[in-house]
Measured scan of single mutants.
Amino acid sequence: DTFTFTLDGIEVRLHGASEELIKTIEELLKRDIRWEELEKWIREWEK
């Protein structure tokens, strides 16, 4: 599955994202998160 969203005018596609990761990103997007914050968060998630 591919999860697609737009952040700061950039279309982002995550391939093979888990349901948990998708739900977490959706929550972060509701908080009007900035790209830099999401990028940092995703790097931490990957560890």
Rank of each mutant, 00 (worst) to 15 (best):
K23M: 13
G9Y: 05
I22F: 03
G9W: 05
A17H: 03
H15G: 06
R43I: 10
W41F: 15
T24V: 12
E27V: 10
K47H: 14
E19Y: 11
W35D: 01
K23T: 09
V12K: 01
L29E: 01
L28P: 00
T4Y: 10
L21G: 01
W45I: 07
D8N: 07
E37K: 05
E26Q: 13
R13N: 13
K23I: 08
T2L: 11
K23W: 08
E37T: 10
I33N: 03
T24D: 11
H15F: 10
T4Q: 07
R31I: 08
R43Y: 08
S18E: 06
L7H: 09
E26V: 13
R34H: 10
R13P: 03
I10C: 13
K40Q: 13
H15M: 09
E20N: 10
L14K: 00
E44C: 04
E20T: 09
T4C: 10
T4S: 12
A17R: 02
D1T: 13
I42R: 01
E44I: 03
T4E: 12
E19P: 14
W41H: 12
L29M: 06
E39M: 13
S18G: 07
K47W: 12
L21F: 14
A17Y: 07
L38I: 05
V12C: 08
H15S: 12
L29D: 01
E26G: 08
E37C: 05
K30E: 09
T2G: 08
W45G: 02
I33M: 08
W35G: 03
L7R: 01
E36W: 08
E39T: 05
K47T: 14
I42G: 00
E26F: 08
E37D: 11
E46A: 05
W41P: 00
S18W: 03
K40C: 05
F5P: 01
E20R: 05
E20M: 13
F3Q: 02
W45E: 05
K30S: 11
A17V: 14
K23D: 07
T24S: 15
K40M: 12
E37P: 02
I25R: 00
W35F: 14
L14V: 12
H15V: 13
F5I: 07
S18D: 11
E27W: 08
E27Q: 11
L7Y: 12
E20L: 12
E20V: 09
K30V: 09
L14Q: 00
E19N: 12
L29G: 01
D32G: 13
G9Q: 04
D8G: 07
W41C: 03
D1L: 15
L38E: 00
R34C: 08
G9S: 05
R43C: 10
I25K: 00
L28A: 11
I10N: 10
G9E: 06
R13S: 15
W41Q: 07
R34W: 06
K30T: 11
L7A: 03
R13H: 15
T24W: 11
E36V: 14
T6E: 13
D1E: 12
I25H: 00
F5H: 01
F3G: 00
L21N: 05
L38P: 00
L21W: 06
E27M: 12
E39D: 09
L7C: 06
K47D: 14
E37F: 08
E26M: 14
D8P: 01
I22N: 01
G9L: 06
T6L: 13
D1W: 09
